Amino acid sequence: MKCNEISHFSHPQHKLSYEYSEFPFKCDGCKEVGIGSRYKCTNCDYDLHMHCAIPSPSITHPFYTKCSFQFLSRPPGNVPRYCNACEKDITGFLYHCRSCGFDLHPCCAKLPMVLDDGDVKLYLYRKVSASCHRCGRKGRNKSWSYRSTCKKYNLHVACVKEMLVDSWHEIYFGHDNNYNNSNTNYRKLENRIPSLKGTLQTHHKKSKGKAQKCCEVAGLALQFIISAVLGDPTTLIAGVVGSLMSK
């Protein structure tokens, strides 16, 4: 349930207000990038994904039927942890299974099993044997994947994260703390929205008809996958990402 204002243990000095933003932000809870719905402290420029601001104390996941994941504010122990969904390091909030040792970023843990806008339907798989549209590999260790109903389009969740890191390096690593407040930087950001446009055009450069339609579907699918990975898998946010990708 969404509240307009909340108190959060990670930022006790001020209350956090619900806000919707079309600007990417770095979540101060899980340390991952987000877009869309968030809780923000305007005094301190402190941001949290919805999933980080109002977490479930414990969750289960259909990919790990024997696991019970507990929400933690920091990774347990002194050994580096990585997310079993996207293979990326975990440096902040997480869901952890004490019995199996599995870890999930909060947004990865809440990735929808099905993304469906009426035209494009994508299913989340723990593993797929087909090649990824981004990296071209048929298997990638432990990364989850989204796959289209026709099974012709696949994209690793890990590859989406890599695209985001490459495009939004300053946000991930904090080299530019004024990204959200600068129109100049926002225009630069628009040109670095992750896109498969070039890859798809090269892949089907001599093909038309069904192949061209495949590219269009793949591009739309990417919009929804990026939106889901960023913590807000809504049609509205997918449209925002799509408009930025087209520039």
Rank of each mutant, 00 (worst) to 15 (best):
C86T: 02
G77F: 10
E87Q: 11
Q13R: 08
P55G: 00
D45I: 02
F69R: 02
P106G: 08
C83Q: 05
S37A: 15
C97A: 06
L104V: 04
P106H: 03
S21C: 02
T65L: 15
T91M: 06
C100Y: 12
E32F: 03
S7N: 11
F23A: 13
S17R: 12
Q13V: 01
A53V: 11
N78A: 12
D47E: 11
G101M: 01
H51M: 09
D103Y: 02
Q70L: 12
S73E: 10
C27E: 07
D47Q: 06
C83M: 03
Y95H: 03
E19W: 09
N78C: 13
H11V: 01
G36W: 03
G34I: 05
Y82I: 11
R81Q: 15
G29M: 05
Q70I: 12
N43W: 01
K15G: 10
T91K: 10
V33A: 07
M50I: 12
F9G: 00
F63A: 11
S68M: 09
S7M: 10
K26Q: 11
H11N: 03
S17Y: 08
A85H: 01
T91F: 05
S7C: 09
S68V: 15
I54R: 05
V33S: 06
G36H: 06
L94V: 00
Y20L: 14
N78L: 14
D47P: 00
C41H: 02
F93H: 07
S58Q: 12
C86H: 02
E19D: 08
V79T: 15
H49D: 09
S17H: 13
C83I: 01
R74Q: 14
T91Q: 08
M50K: 10
P24R: 06
Y20M: 13
Q13S: 07
F25L: 10
G36K: 02
